[in-house]
Design a protein around this nucleic acid. Structure first.
Length: 191
DNA sequence: TGCCTGATCGGCT
DNA sequence: GCCGATCAGGCAC
């Protein structure tokens, strides 16, 4: 189990995104560890990316996106939260959206938080996985690179098979760009 | 203060 | 595949 460091995140999101596939997201809670393997992500760029929350400039909501690489950017959309990891340096607001996980630890807690019993319904979407892992705005802007962090991403040496790329989904602008990456044939990839 | 929008989800057809 | 729920953020007034 190796914690991903600052250098991992301090790169172009189009490089970070596919590298995050197969890594493990862990939330250390009072009730125990809740974790899942990342199986689907999307990159959001700084320049000319109309779909990025950074496109119209900095506001209180997207403040974290303009901060340091290796920190979280968590925002609410409809009645849900989504989790991004910030990439590149200060002044270059780019990120990778974690879109889906394969549940590993704390599955009983996930079932309770989601009010669902089927494994595939626990973390197969950006809003679902934050609910399953109890990730809320409270964790916006925290440092993922610290050993002491409540939220971590680690490399457990798991080797993934094929990666598929596609256009991003669920957005109204700049859908065409092939910024979505997911593990081929994985059950937990969102629809 | 009020109106509009959206990087979603779940239920229904 | 379509649609409604439901709410925080952003912006105009």
């Amino acid at each position: 189990m190796k914690l991903l460091g600052y250098e991992f995140y301090n790169r172009n999101p189009l490089e970070v995104a596919p590298d995050l596939l197969g890594k493990v997201l862990i939330h250390r809670t009072r009730e125990g560890e809740i974790s899942g393997r990342i199986v689907e992500v999307e990159a959001y760029l700084a320049d000319k990316d109309e779909a990025s929350h950074a496109f119209k400039g900095q506001t209180p909501r997207n403040k974290s996106l303009f901060g340091e690489a290796g920190h979280t950017y968590i925002y609410s959309i409809h009645n849900h939260y989504c989790l991004d990891v910030v990439t590149q340096g200060i002044g270059i607001p780019t990120s990778v959206l974690i879109r889906a996980l394969e549940p590993l630890e704390g599955i009983e807690i996930m079932k309770k938080l989601r009010s669902r019993d089927k494994l595939v319904e626990l973390t197969s979407g950006p809003g679902k996985l934050t609910q399953a892992l109890n990730i809320t705005k409270r964790l916006d802007g925290i440092n993922l690179v610290s050993e002491k962090s409540e939220l971590l991403i680690v490399d457990d040496q798991y080797k993934i098979e094929d990666i598929v790329t596609s256009g991003r989904i669920g957005i109204s602008k700049a859908k065409e760009a092939e910024y979505r990456f997911f593990i081929k044939n994985n059950l937990f990839v969102s629809r």
